[in-house]
Every structure is written in C-alpha cells, then in structure tokens.
Design a binder for these strands. Structure first.
Lengths: 142, 142
DNA sequence: TTTATTTTTGTAATCGTTTCATTTTTATTT
DNA sequence: AAATAAAAATGAAACGATTACAAAAATAAA
C-alpha cells in the first residue's frame, strides 16, 4: 500500500467524475489515509478547524457520494454509527466489544469461495463482520 | 431441521432461564418458525390479533432478551431495520437490493477458516452479509 | 457582468429503537 | 383465600444518528 499524494487523490476523484472541491478533497484524503474506520462525526471534528468552515451535512453527503462511486466503503457494524473505510480491497472487519475499535483482517480467499450457490445469486458486495475481544483487551481483561 | 412443537419451544425458553409468558412464547415461536428474517414491526403485526393485546415495546424487549440469551440472532444488514433470525446455526445472509428479501446461504466452512490471525483475536460472533440481486429479481430484471 | 449550475450550509424533520413510569399479571407468603 | 412481592407488559415520551430541504455561497458558462 503506497502513500498517495494529494494530487493523486485529486485525480482519483476527477476520474470518478467528482469535482474536487476543498471540502471534498479534504474528506477524501482523511478517509483514504485513515485506518481507524472513522464515523462522519469523527471526520467532521478532524477537519472543521483545518477547513475553517464545514458542516456535518456536507460530510454525510460527500461520504455517500464516494460510497456510491465505489471509492470508499460504508460499514454498518452494529454499534449505532456508520463507519467509513478508504480501503476498498478485500478484507474483513473485526469490532472489539470492549474498546469498540475496528480492525482490518486479511481473508484467505475471495468471498465467492465461502458460500454455496454462488451461481444463483448475483453478488455485488460482501462484508464479513466479526465481533469479540481484540488482542489488547483480551490480555488486559478489561 | 425438524419441526418443533410448542411444548419444545417452551422448554427451550425455560432451559435458558426465561419464563414463557403467552407473549414470549408466541414471539419465540414466530421467529423460530419464520424463514423470512422478520423485523420487530412484522412480528408485532403478525401476533397482535392472535394475542389480543401486544405492544411493540414488548416485542423489542423480548427479541433483545432472546438475542442476549443466544436463542436467536439479530441481523443488522443495513436496510434501516433490525431483522431477527431464529436459526442460530452457521450460515450467511444475502439481501436483495431490488426486492429487499433476505435469504439464507449455506457456507462451506467455519468462519475461522476465512481469515488470517484468528489466534490474536477472540471471536465470539461472525456475520457474513452479501448484497446483490436474488435469482428472481435477476431474471425479471426489475 | 450576467446567468446558470454546482456545492455547501444550517435547520428541521425523520423514524426505528430505547427509556421510563405505570399497570397488569404471575408467583410467593401469610 | 387474601395479602404481599416479584416479574412482565404496556403506552407515551425521549432519543439520536442520519436525511431532507431550502437558502446561501461558490464556481463555471455565456
């Protein structure tokens, strides 16, 4: 995973037919560079100072725009918030029921190998969500 | 999968330390027997006549009780509603983006075989959610 | 500049779910 | 059986993350 420059991120937006406004580029950069699967609120709080003005509605609108364009993933991992993931490559998500952190997990094969009858259903998206204790919380017993 | 009698369902509740009131048994029977992954609202509408009186709060409370007891599954498959599944055995869920129906899919192996690093994380629950077109909607192109 | 289009913004609304206090039902004790 | 205690059901109200909406600001086109 190579680090992307701001110019490259801008190109990705334009290639997707999305005009890279200041807000849009900042939001895209934040989500693409983050590994913490931030919520809209987190994105908003992280960028409002840097941008001077920013509205939570813009954050939601923009994240939806990117999701529909296939640039990012929207995760619904059942903690009451939508989370956003700038990494669209195949991987699973683990949420720690103790600390709430969401971790990426490498999967061993494509999802089409996981279940039967793949021919009958036309699968466009697959999400594997795992729950339990992360290594840190497991050892601390908290 | 053998059909369960009402007496057997009652025993399952009692074995879980749950007192089988009229409402509880009716809700449990409905969810255990259904293959449609109903929402709380669906359960409520299906049983309110039969029971004479029933409140939506009771349905929510009871379904939460069963989920915490491990008797049923709560599915958060990202359509704005929580769905409930009386089948707790290992299987994946497919939601059709056209008709909204949720289908069960048999999986080829235990989830622990799907991802790397299973030793580091203590996994207590796994859900594989798939999205796309179901066979019917696929053929009808609607 | 004028005009049209796109994007951002703040407020208000949405609505599935939860909280809470009260009532009803069920179990236990006297 | 009556009295008491405990559990469950109920309806109304609250919650809160997300979305809808209309106005304002920014950008592009003429």
């Amino acid at each position: 995973m190579k680090k992307l420059t701001r110019a490259e991120l801008k190109s990705e937006l334009m290639n997707a037919g999305i005009r890279p406004s200041v807000q849009r580029l900042a939001i895209y950069e934040f989500v693409r560079m983050s590994k913490a699967h931030p919520t809209a609120e987190v994105v908003y709080e992280a960028l409002r100072e840097e941008l001077g003005s920013l509205s939570l509605t813009t954050v939601y609108n923009t994240l939806k725009l990117y999701t529909d364009a296939g640039l990012i993933l929207t995760l619904n991992i059942d903690d009451g918030f939508l989370h956003y993931d700038g990494d669209t490559s195949l991987h699973a998500h683990f949420r720690c029921s103790s600390c709430g952190a969401i971790h990426d997990l490498a999967v061993k094969s494509d999802y089409s190998n996981w279940f039967e009858g793949s021919g009958d259903f036309s699968v466009t998206e697959a999400q594997l969500y795992l729950k339990g204790l992360c290594p840190k919380c497991k050892s601390c017993k908290n």
